[in-house]
């Protein structure tokens, strides 16, 4: 099974990927959250500097990057959110 999802990149991740948003047409599902993150890293290797510093969210819910299995559906939103520190 695969799903078509929209990935949103925020803050530093948008700068590193050069994108604010992209469609991924055939993401396997269910997939571990680590697997999902690795898939994003494959597409945008520069994101690796954010490893351990990023909030990953699926359908606007936080998912810890690890073994947790995530079921994806068509049209789901995945967000990559590194912290901002400026003020």
């Amino acid at each position: 099974m695969t799903a078509q999802v929209t990935v949103l990149y925020f803050a530093k991740s948008a700068e590193l990927s050069g994108l604010k948003e992209e469609e991924l047409v055939a993401v396997p599902t269910p997939i571990s959250s680590q697997g999902l993150w690795s898939l994003l890293l494959q597409r945008h290797p520069r994101l690796c500097v954010l490893q351990h510093q990023v909030v990953l969210a699926v359908r606007q819910q936080y998912v810890a990057i690890g073994d947790e299995l995530v079921a994806l559906g068509d049209g789901d939103e995945v967000a990559v959110v590194p912290p901002l520190s400026g003020g």
């Binding site: 530093k12 700068e15 500097v49 954010l50 351990h52 510093q53 590194p82 912290p83 400026g86 003020g87």
Partner: peptide
């Protein structure tokens, strides 16, 4: 809880 590890300083952009 959210950010257990600080970001490497060279990846931080400030205002």
């Amino acid at each position: 809880c959210l950010y257990p590890v600080p970001p490497p300083s060279e990846t931080v952009t400030n205002c």
